[in-house]
């Protein structure tokens, strides 16, 4: 019996040490709380409101900056994307179906593999497949309004007119 007690005490001690280490010695980092369940944002009535919503989505729910940032090099930077987009759709390597910058951004969000910026494709696919998820489904789950809002945000940042989503711009292309 004394053997049993010794072994039990030893095992409990080991478990105690591991628990102490994991619970006390490493920094207690609280993971982010899950995003709220309420999803579809009401469509803002003004272009400004749409762009503001877009900024929130871009930096928050959309998790865009997780990859589109200057540090990791995982995805192309989105600064000046309106200008870059206009160049890309005219470029010889462009395979997608977009006619203007807004369409290009939408296409990149819902069908990222339609055109992959050279060097950013999944390894081994010669830039034919993008590592980016479809923002509508997947872990991100943006609504049509939110996609429009992100486009509006880019347009507003670039100083060009917001062409998407607002009532003035006509019915959304669904």
């Amino acid at each position: 019996m004394s053997n049993f007690l010794k072994v039990a005490a030893f095992s409990l001690f080991i478990i105690g040490v591991y628990t102490f280490f994991a619970d006390r010695l490493i920094p207690p980092i609280a993971p982010q709380a899950p995003p709220p369940l309420t999803e579809v944002a009401a469509r803002p009535m003004t272009a400004d409101g749409l762009a503001r919503l877009g900024e929130e989505v871009f930096k928050g729910k959309g998790a865009c900056t997780l990859c589109h940032n200057p540090v990791g090099g995982r995805a192309p930077l989105l600064d000046g994307i309106i200008i870059k987009a206009n160049e890309r759709i005219k470029g010889p390597g462009y395979r997608g179906g977009a006619k203007d910058a807004a369409e290009y951004i939408r296409e990149s969000m819902v069908n990222p593999s339609a055109y992959v910026v050279p060097g950013f494709g999944v390894a081994g696919t010669h830039d034919t497949k993008s590592p980016m998820p479809d923002v509508r489904g997947s872990e991100i789950g943006l609504s049509e309004v939110e996609i429009d809002a992100v486009i509006a945000y880019f347009q507003r940042s670039a100083g060009v007119e917001v062409t998407v989503g607002s009532p003035a711009a006509g019915p959304e292309g669904k």
Binding site: Y18, T19, A22, R24, A30
Partner: peptide, 15 residues
């Protein structure tokens, strides 16, 4: 319960 618990909490459960 959808939130992710901390490592410390998980360690206690595992123990």
């Amino acid at each position: 319960d959808a939130f992710t618990p901390t490592i410390g909490y998980a360690a206690r459960v595992v123990s």
